[in-house]
């Protein structure tokens, strides 16, 4: 094992910046966040990096390592033996400083999703099979790596037309709750912009929680929109059924 690794870390703020190289002694099983902590303690005490739990539970330490969106606490340094490790902030959000970005837009949108509207008071009677698929979505740690990789937000900056995979998953968990009475389809088709997604699945690829965002979340939402807006026959059948 090499004694030392080289990290090239983005330093800068909204006015710009560049990567700066640091040497860090290699330790067994080290993750990239450990290396950044070493840099903070020894070379650059003001190196800004967001982190909390260091156990991949909280979703704070999202960044891009050699071009791929990853959690810093879960990415092992020994995955990059013989390479310089380039660490940059998330591309789709404005940089505050160094590796810290302004992700407040996501919280604004989360606030705009109509909340859970249960049909009855708790305690609920629900089978495990009724909640399995929403539990998958509620495993989200809000790291926003899916928002970061989504090309609609990343390359086209279409935040005014599409709310991104995280928000789709939030809406999906409500729409698929057996006891929810809310209707978010107009929102989905309109402001939230599910039609902007072209199901190229990069969100699913980067999700550290392994949520099948596209197949289990977004596509079923697209089909729900199709039920109402592209399928008059189905709509009639549903009306008669009621």
């Amino acid at each position: 094992m090499p004694d030392e690794i080289t990290l090239s870390v983005y330093r800068g703020d909204k006015s710009g910046g560049q990567e700066v190289e640091f040497k860090v002694p290699m330790q067994t099983g080290m993750v990239v966040l450990d290396a950044l902590h070493f840099i903070q303690a020894h070379d650059a005490p003001d190196l800004a990096v967001r982190w909390n739990c260091k156990a991949a539970h909280c979703g704070s330490c999202s960044a891009e390592i050699n071009g791929s969106p990853k959690l810093l606490c879960k990415t092992r340094v020994d995955d990059y033996v013989g390479e310089v490790i380039h660490v940059r902030p998330m591309h789709s959000f404005p940089v505050i400083k160094d590796l810290v970005t302004d992700v407040s837009w996501n919280y604004e949108k989360l606030r705009q999703v109509p909340a859970f509207q249960p049909a009855i008071k708790a305690p609920f009677t629900l089978q495990q099979r009724d909640v399995d698929r929403i539990q998958e979505f509620r495993n989200c740690i809000e790291c926003f790596l899916c928002q970061n990789i989504c090309h609609v937000l990343r390359d086209h900056d279409a935040k005014d037309r599409y709310w991104g995979p995280r928000l789709m998953i939030r809406i999906a968990e409500l729409e698929m709750h057996p006891l929810d009475t809310g209707d978010r389809l107009e929102l989905l088709k309109g402001a939230a912009g599910v039609g902007m997604c072209n199901i190229t699945k990069c969100c699913t690829v980067v999700c550290p929680q392994g949520i099948d965002i596209t197949d289990n979340g977004i596509i079923p939402l697209k089909e729900r929109v199709a039920d109402v807006y592209w399928d008059p026959l189905g709509g009639l059948v549903r009306k008669l059924h009621k």
Partner: peptide
Amino acid sequence: EYWGAVFDRTPEG
């Protein structure tokens, strides 16, 4: 649960 938490279930639901 009423606010939207989704706990694991017993066979009785």
